[in-house]
Structures are given as structure tokens and as C-alpha cells.
Design a protein around this nucleic acid. Structure first.
Lengths: 337, 337
DNA sequence: CTTGGTTTTGTATACGTATTCAAACAGGTT
DNA sequence: AACCTGTTTGAATACGTATACAAAACCAAG
């Protein structure tokens, strides 16, 4: 019932020491004698005192807050990422302040401003739409930025992705080895680096085997658009016998359309391969062959980079592409060995 | 390149006014003449000034931060909730600081302490494991708390849930009307209020129709445990002809087990009903009949309560149960009308 | 012009903590 | 006992902003 605003001064009084002493007890690496530590700890516990992190940030210039700009969580890959990211930062003494950047029409300036208002120590941008502008602005303001699961031509910006080019290539190798010759591609949002890199690697791989791309449609990284894309590809007389879908999130509705609307059997009639290894990929109903994005490694790299950026304001930008295996499940014909 | 720490004092100097004047310009409802507003705005824009929210919180006692304690995001219902919640709070000038409370073994005290360190204006607890203790502690510290999608016997705590009791009841009515008499139930984590209420409503409904519960197994709200539970229920000679699964997240693996391990057809051989209306419920592969939890309404209620609690420190606790319809899809036999 | 009331402004202070600086202290050497 | 060195300590100040208070400016009415 007592007005519960207990400050370092209260503790100092009770312990019979100066406020500075209290502060030092709670500042790792400060110079205090064991006797004072003892007294202060006792008083602090009695009063239930804990340092106010926001007040502390005024002096230290560190808030312990990492901004996370994220677009949408429908794609199951992202919640998993967020979960691991948050947990990892938490063990490092940081916490995640979430900024939803849903509609890209929204004012970028507004979001950037809000983020900076909170004096975030760093920014992780996993947003689809406006990550590039947003990140540039934040970086210009002196905040370390890491692009997660997207990258940027601008090489001054750190980024962590899977090796999308190599991944696309692996899919091409796999499908061609499986004997496919009429291979379709369902693209993601065209401006995304993930989309571009995956497609480029894929096409290169096909070309290396002397196979051309049979058909292409745009799925925009969205369920509905992907379903439409599947309908488009398979409504023609000369259907693909395999499809590479730019991410799992789109591959699921694509599989549903092929099975339930076209009555096709997977993989007997058509092979489907995705990208990400999102959780439903190993649900029996989908059992999707896909390129794994190694979430733990991506998270670890991301955290490492952002912490480095905080420690050393001008640590050089890093662009990390983590290799991931193609996970062979039942949605695509398996090449004879 | 200039050391980018621009403060209200810098602005004041440039504008030729006092620091207080600058502060007032950025404080809604403060008394400033249009002339000063003009001058300050100009100077602020020139320098790119924005008030430091953390510093501001020292005076106002408001951080604009809402803590969100959440356990795990595998259950697709939660990411959607988080997304809407965050967006809604954002439009109200608040932001979400995420606290992952993954392993319930973890020290509750530690998490509570961390949350309070950030001077959060409110706490939303959607955590499975330790929400009760955690919430109690936070509330004791004078922070408004809302339990989201779980409630508490303790009626001093606000909570927002769907009407789980009524929902369970609806499922019973529906399955009995569908002609089922051997009805099984796969339970969630036994300590969760959602689990208890859904089961209670369900049993009551069955009893009202003179039908007993045929079988029961524990799924713990986890995929693997739910799959095991399904195996347990269907390995016996006398199988259920319908199952109510305590949430969709468990219903998906249950359907997969029934189809792929037992070769059962849904709904011809067995009906399955879930709870939540998580996104995959309307994916064609599952097409799951389920009780909808009205996310937008739940989020709206939650935000309303927490904001009320912030405005008025002792606004009375509210316990809201939002009714949701049973969404009839293809996973359960449809009663003749 | 005064006067009285209202609005606007600046000065000073507070918010809760970290840190600089100089004073106080401890401990060992001669 | 006197000296030096290295560690602890408290007083004072800084961090960036909001606000109580009093001085100043304004405005309408007398």
C-alpha cells in the first residue's frame, strides 16, 4: 500500500550510505567495498528496490531496447524467428520493442521517428515492405541496423539471410535430377531480395543443365496470390510437372490448389518444392520438400552483429548468407541415386 | 556526421526561446502562443529534434511501453493476436515490449523484475505457464494487468477470453446433433483455465443430452503430446466416432495421425472439432470445424481495459468473455436440419 | 491611462541514476 | 612515525525533459 516508488536515495538513507554508493553496487565493475555491498543489498531487498532502467539510460546512453520492425506474422517462419530472437536477446540483457509496419503506404518517417524516440540501441528489420528506407534512416541516425532475412544492394548495411542463391540452385539441381523437364516457378514479391536471389540461383541451375523455365507466375509471398498463381500455371494445356515456390508460406496453398482443385497427386503428378522449412512443412499433410533456412544460426548471427554494432559504434557492416540444406520429404519426386 | 544528440536545449537556443517553451510545444495541451510554436517547430525541423521518450518518462511517469509476456508462438493463434495487439496499441501511442517466458522453470521473479525495470505502463499476460504468478506480482507492484486468453479464479484481475464454457457446450450440441455417441476429448494443459472451461462446458453439454464422454486423453496444448493422445484414443478396439480437441493447434496433428497413421477418413469415419479458428483451420487440407475466438474483439477489449487501467489507476477489474460462433467446415459430420 | 484578469513566458527545480572529482582511507615500506 | 600508492567514498553534477512558480505580457473594460 505504501506508494511504491522506491529510489536509490531511499536505499541510501536506509543503508546509511550515499546515493552514489547504491548506484555503484548495481553497476557491474564499479569500485565498492564488500561491506557496502552487503549493507546496500540488504536495504535494497528490504525495500524491494531495483534500478530504473529508463533513468539509467539517460546517463549510460544505453536503453537495452532493440527495435524490431516486422511486417506481418502470417508466414509461420517469422513467429519462430521472433521467438528465438527475443529469447536470445533476452539472455544478453536486451529486450525487443515491436514495431508493426503492416501497410507499406504508412508513413515511413513516422515509424522511424517512433523507433528512434525510444532510444533503441539497435534495430532489426525483418519487415518486408519498407525495410530498406527504414533501415537507411535509422542507420543515418547512428543506430546499428541489421536486415534479417532480406538484404540490400547497399553494402554499408549489415544483413543476415540464408544463401538464397545457392538454395535456388540446389532446387534446380534436385528437380532436374528427378527427371523433370517442365518446371514452373511461383515468384514472391518482386522487390524482395530473397525473391530475386532465389530465382536467380534457380534459373542459373536450370540453365546449367540445359533446361529452360517452363512457366512462371507471381505469388507475391501471399497465400491468395499464390493460389491464383497456381491456378494460372495449371490451367493451360501443357502443365508443368514440377513447381518451385519461392517460399513455404506460398507452397502450402499451392499444394492445396493442386490437390483439391486440380485433383493432382503430389508427387506422382507434380512435384512441389518450397523454401524456408516453415513448421507446417513437416506436417504430414504437406510433407514438403524445401530448402531449410537455419533459424538458430540466422538468429545467432543477427544477435552477434547487432551486439557488436552496439559495443563498437563503427564495427564494419557484415553481410552473412547462411547455407542451408535441401530437406527432402515427400512432396517431390526423389532422384534415383 | 555531427554528433547526433540534439536536445530541447539546442532547439531552444536556435529558436531563441527557453527550454521550457520547447518542451511545451511538444506537450499536447500545454499553453504556448502560435508564434512560439512556429519558431520552435522550425528550429526542431532544422535540427531534426524529437523528444526523448525515456527522459520524458522520468517526469510524466509514463513510458508508453506495454509489456507482453508470452510463452510460445508455435500455436498460430498467438502470432495473429500479437500482430493485432501490437498494431492496435501502436495507434494509441503505445508500444509492445516482448518478454518470452518460454521455460516455466525459469525464475518468475527474474522475469517480473525485468519487466518492472522498464517501467511498463501495463502488462498483458498471454503466457501459458507462469501468467498467474507473474500477473499477481506485477499487479502488486501497481501495474495494470490484463490476462489475455486465460483467466484466473482471482477476480481482482482483469481478463479477456472467449466464452470457453459456452464454446465447449456448442461443440457438444453440434456433435450430438450430428448423431455421434462415442465422443472423445483431447485435453490441453490441465492447469489452463481455457482447458478447464472448455472441457466443463463440453461435458455439461454432453450430459444435457444424456451422452457420456467416451474417452479422454491429454494433449497438453502441444503437437507431439496431442498426436500421442490421438494414438492412445484410437488404438483401442472401441474407437470414438468423434473427437473434440481442446485447440486447433492440437487438432491439426490429431487429424494427421488419424488420416495417415490410422487410415481414417474425416469426417466419414470420424469427426474432428477444434477450438480457436487458427489460420490453418480454413486451409483446404484441414478444413476444420472449430469454435472461433474473435481475435479483433478480444484485442479491442484487451486494449480498452489496459488503457483504462492506465488512465485511472484504480479502475475496477473486468473479466470479459467474448462469445464466438462454431464455424462449420468439413471436418465433422453436419447435422441434418 | 489605470486596473484587473487571463494567458504566455522564463527560471528553477524535479524525475532517478551514473559518473567525475577530490577528499578520506587503508596498507605497506622505509 | 612518516611517507607513498592504491582503493573507497561522498558531494556535486550531468543526462533530457516536464512542470510549479512567479514574472511578464497581453487584453478588455473602466
Amino acid at each position: 500500500m505504501s506508494s511504491n516508488r522506491v529510489t536509490s536515495i531511499d536505499v541510501a538513507k536506509l543503508a546509511g550510505v550515499s546515493q552514489a554508493a547504491v548506484s555503484r553496487v548495481f553497476t557491474p565493475g564499479a569500485s565498492v567495498s564488500p561491506r557496502i555491498v552487503e549493507k546496500v543489498r540488504l536495504a535494497a531487498d528490504r525495500l524491494g528496490y531495483r534500478p530504473n532502467r529508463l533513468a539509467r539510460s539517460l546517463n549510460t546512453g544505453r536503453s537495452g531496447i532493440i527495435g524490431l520492425a516486422i511486417g506481418y506474422l502470417e508466414n509461420q517462419f517469422y513467429p519462430e524467428l521472433l521467438q528465438q530472437l527475443s529469447a536470445s536477446l533476452q539472455t544478453n540483457g536486451y529486450h525487443v520493442l515491436v514495431f508493426m509496419t503492416g501497410n507499406p503506404d504508412e508513413d515511413v518517417d513516422k515509424v522511424v521517428a517512433e523507433i528512434l524516440d525510444y532510444q533503441v540501441d539497435g534495430l532489426i528489420a525483418a519487415s518486408v515492405g519498407m525495410s530498406s528506407q527504414l533501415a537507411r534512416r535509422a542507420q543515418a541516425a547512428g543506430v546499428p541496423v541489421v536486415l534479417l532475412n532480406r538484404s540490400q544492394d547497399d553494402s554499408t548495411m549489415s544483413s543476415v539471410t540464408s544463401d538464397n542463391h545457392a538454395g535456388g540452385r540446389k532446387v534446380a539441381d534436385f528437380l532436374v535430377a528427378g527427371g523433370h523437364r517442365r518446371i514452373g516457378y511461383i515468384a514472391g514479391w518482386e522487390s524482395a531480395s530473397t525473391q530475386r536471389d532465389r530465382e536467380a540461383g534457380f534459373r542459373e541451375g536450370l540453365a546449367a543443365h540445359g533446361v529452360g523455365l517452363w512457366a512462371r507466375a507471381r505469388g507475391e509471398f501471399e497465400r491468395e496470390a499464390a493460389a491464383d498463381a497456381a491456378r494460372e500455371l495449371f490451367s493451360t494445356g501443357n502443365r508443368p510437372d514440377a513447381v518451385f515456390v519461392a517460399n513455404d508460406h506460398m507452397a502450402f496453398p499451392v499444394m492445396d490448389v493442386l490437390r483439391h482443385e486440380f485433383g493432382l497427386r503430389i508427387p506422382q503428378d507434380v512435384s512441389v518444392v518450397g523454401y524456408d522449412d516453415a513448421p507446417p512443412a513437416n506436417w504430414p499433410s504437406y510433407d514438403l520438400t524445401t530448402v531449410r533456412q537455419d533459424r538458430p544460426s540466422m538468429v545467432a548471427a543477427c544477435v552477434k552483429i547487432i551486439l557488436a554494432g552496439i559495443e563498437n559504434r563503427d564495427s564494419p557492416p557484415q553481410r552473412i548468407a547462411i547455407d542451408g540444406p535441401i530437406v527432402i520429404r515427400g512432396s517431390a519426386r526423389i532422384p534415383p541415386r
